[in-house]
Structures are given as structure tokens and as C-alpha cells.
Simulated assay, not measured.
Amino acid sequence: MLTLYALTLCVGVAVVSASPFDQRQCPYDSCNQVKEGVLNVHIVPHTHDDVGWLKTVDQYYYGSRNNIQKAGVQYILDSVVKELWEDPKRRFIYVETAFFWKWWNKQKDATQQKVKTLVKEGRLQFIGGAWSMNDEATTHYQSTIDQFTWGLRKLKDTFGQCGIPTVGWQIDPL
């Protein structure tokens, strides 16, 4: 199921560092400042790109076989990076390291540097960190451990501490 959702991630009065944006360090201190005494709602767009559900990884990534399902993951990443770069108030969370890695390896150095900046500023965050979101109904625990290990290692090696997810994510629990 390849879809781009807008999710109400946090509802409530948030406690957030009041430091200026340029002094913030990755995820926890990167939220937009809140207004005291009011309900602060954070709506964070995110991905839910199944790695090989109805189509192959490449078919999802490149957007082929749209008669099965309309999907083109590379375009999500292209547009997200562009929009995040243009507006520092925007945030996005990304789940599937497999698709991200496929996209990342095709980017020029300038784009990779922009993405590293977005991650360091906490405007682009990785959630879960696994290579793909495991399906707890049909997987063995060793497969879950392996694919989390691989995905988390890629994120940490590429983005350092700022690439390590601070939020767990499972949108399809059974």
C-alpha cells in the first residue's frame, strides 16, 4: 500500500526547547516552538511504502505497473527534499530504509548534503529504522532482527546519531 498520509502525530501541549532553530540539534530539539497556554497540534506527513507488497521493489520505486497500484517512491523523496529545503517549518518522517537507500545512492553530492542538513536539523527523521517494516504475522524473529540491524546500520553510518530513529513505528499491526 503506497500512500502518502498526513498524520496527527502529537496532540497536546508539547514541552520543546525554546532555543533558536539554528542552534538545535537533531530530532528532539528540532520541533517548531510551541505557544504556551494553547493546544499545540503537530501534523507530520509520513510515508507508508510497502517494500514489495503488490509490486516489486523496482516497480514501486520507479512507478511502473500503475495498473496494479499508482506508486512512484522516488518522486515522494524528490518532492519531500525540495519542499523541506524551501521551508524550515516543514517536517517529514520516513519509514522504509530500503527505498530511501535506493534513492540516496542515485543522488548527486549536493542533494546528499542537503539531506544530511535536513536530518541534522531534525526536519527529516527516520522512524523505526528497519530496512522495511516487518509483517509480524508472517516473519520469524531472526528476520526482524536482521532487517532492523541492516537498516539501522545504514542510517547511522550515513547520518551519525541524527539518523538513529527516536520513535518506533508500525502502521500495519495485526
Rank of each mutant, 00 (worst) to 15 (best):
L77N: 07
R123M: 05
V34D: 06
P20N: 08
K154S: 06
Q170Y: 10
L9Q: 14
L7G: 04
E83V: 14
S19L: 12
F92Q: 00
F100K: 00
R65G: 03
L155H: 06
C31T: 11
D135V: 01
V15D: 12
D87F: 05
Y75S: 08
K156R: 13
Q112T: 11
V81Q: 04
L4W: 08
Q113G: 04
N66S: 13
T111V: 11
A110I: 13
R123P: 08
F148W: 07
V13T: 15
W131M: 03
T166G: 12
V41I: 13
V13N: 15
P173W: 00
G128D: 01
P173H: 04
I43N: 07
F126H: 00
W101R: 04
L118T: 02
D172S: 10
H46K: 07
K116G: 07
A14Q: 11
R65Q: 12
K70L: 03
T138C: 11
V57E: 02
K108E: 12
V38F: 09
T144S: 13
D58C: 03
Q25H: 12
N134F: 15
L39D: 08
G52P: 02
A18Y: 12
T8R: 12
K35L: 13
A71H: 01
H42W: 14
Q107C: 05
P45R: 02
N67E: 15
H48R: 04
D157E: 11
K102R: 08
F159N: 00
L84C: 01
Q59C: 02
Q33H: 14
W103V: 00
Q147G: 06
F92S: 00
T139D: 09
K154V: 08
K70I: 03
F100D: 01
P45M: 01
V34F: 09
Q113C: 09
D146C: 05
T166M: 09
V16E: 04
C31W: 15
A6Y: 14
F21L: 14
E36D: 15
V34I: 07
N105T: 10
K106C: 12
G52Y: 01
L54G: 07
K55I: 03
Q170R: 08
K106Q: 15
T56V: 06
T56K: 03
V34G: 07
A14H: 14
D50K: 00
K108D: 12
S17T: 09
